Each structure stands twice: as structure tokens, then as C-alpha cells.
Simulated scan of single mutants.
Amino acid sequence: MLRLDVVIASTRPGRVGKAVADWFYPVASEHGAFDARLVDLAEMNLPLLDEPNHPRMQKYQHEHTRRWAETVDAADAFVFVVPEYNFGPTPALTNALNYLYLEWNYKAAGFVSYGGASGGLRSVQATKPLLTTLKMMPLVEQVMVPMVNQHLQDGVFESNDYHRDSAQAMLDELERWAGALKPLRAS
């Protein structure tokens, strides 16, 4: 079974990402191909990149980096639950990605994006070049949630058929890519 980390990329108080991730995580778990884990960047509490050595060297000086490296290294694939901040990704996600290098290599990544009219699409598009630099495979298939506040009821995200169908298509494709990339990590 492939390990899938569902990463909540927003860390700010009052965030919507936790509610969206709380909806998506069981969908990923029930898919059948993944041992899904929920990873909250707010709980990881990574400071602004504070390692003196280049991540490629893996000479981590801090316990928070070693803990983050173990988490990322154990996963076969990722789904980033992302909002859009000023047309881009959250600083927490960019920071978390930049902390490591080899641990990300040859892993597939999907997105559940949310926001206003754009549904977080600009954030996803701005994140993809960083993922490819880390030798990751960002998928075309994703879940996009425009006007996310219209889908919140008492703090709980309520999906519709479009969200559920998009999630299924993304998870199916994520299974294909994660499985195909696994031999590259073994060599």
C-alpha cells in the first residue's frame, strides 16, 4: 500500500484548510490504494528555514528538520490542501518544501485548492515549478473549490458531486504515478 500524506498548507488562525482537509482525508483513506496520513503544517511548526547546510546534504542540525525529513521521506505521494495568498502559495508551504530536497524526489503530488472565485488555482500553478525542481510530479487532476465559504456549514466542509468526482479522479491518477515512481526511489 502506498503512503499518502495529506498536507494542510495553511497555518494562520481561522483557516479554512483544516475543514477542507477533514473532508478530503477520509476520501483518500477510503480510496483503497493509500495508507493516508493527515499532516498539518501548523502542528509541524517549522521556523523560517534555519538549517546552515544545503538540504541536498541532509546534514540537519535541528530536531524539527529531522522530524520533518522523516515524515516526508516515509511518504510515496502527497496531496497539498492549499489556499491562495496574493495569487501564490502560503509561506508555510513554500518554507516546508524548501527545507528538504532528496526526501521529495520522485514522488507524485496532487492538490485540493480552495479560495474565492479562482478556487486557489493560481496558488497551485505557482507551486508546480517548485515541485518539479524538487523532482516531484505534480498532477493535472486536482480538486478545486471556488467560493469555499459557500461550502462551509458550522465549520464543516460540505462537498458536492463535482468535488467528490474530482477527488476520485485525482486519487486514481495519484495511485498510478506514485506506483510508477516508486522504483526510481529504490535505486
Rank of each mutant, 00 (worst) to 15 (best):
Y101L: 15
E103G: 01
E103F: 02
E103N: 02
E103D: 04
W104G: 02
Y106H: 07
Y106E: 14
K107C: 06
A109C: 12
G110Y: 01
F111H: 04
Y114E: 02
G115W: 00
G115F: 01
G116T: 08
A117Y: 10
A117P: 11
G119M: 03
G120H: 12
G120M: 05
R122V: 10
R122L: 12
S123Q: 06
S123L: 05
S123C: 15
S123F: 07
V124P: 05
T127W: 08
T127Y: 05
L130Q: 11
L130E: 07
L130V: 15
L131H: 04
T133R: 12
L134Y: 00
K135I: 04
M136I: 01
M137Y: 11
M137C: 07
P138D: 00
P138C: 00
P138E: 02
L139Q: 01
V140L: 11
E141Q: 13
E141A: 09
Q142V: 01
Q142S: 12
V145C: 00
P146Y: 09
M147I: 12
H151S: 08
H151I: 00
H151V: 03
L152P: 10
L152E: 14
Q153K: 08
Q153N: 11
Q153E: 12
D154Q: 13
G155V: 09
F157Q: 09
E158N: 15
N160W: 10
N160Y: 14
N160S: 12
D161Q: 08
Y162P: 07
H163N: 03
H163C: 13
R164A: 06
R164M: 09
D165Y: 10
D165G: 13
D165W: 11
D165L: 14
S166N: 14
S166Y: 07
S166C: 13
A167S: 12
A167F: 05
A167C: 04
A169C: 14
A169K: 04
D172P: 03
L174T: 01
L174R: 02
L174C: 06
A178V: 01
G179S: 13
G179Q: 10
A180S: 04
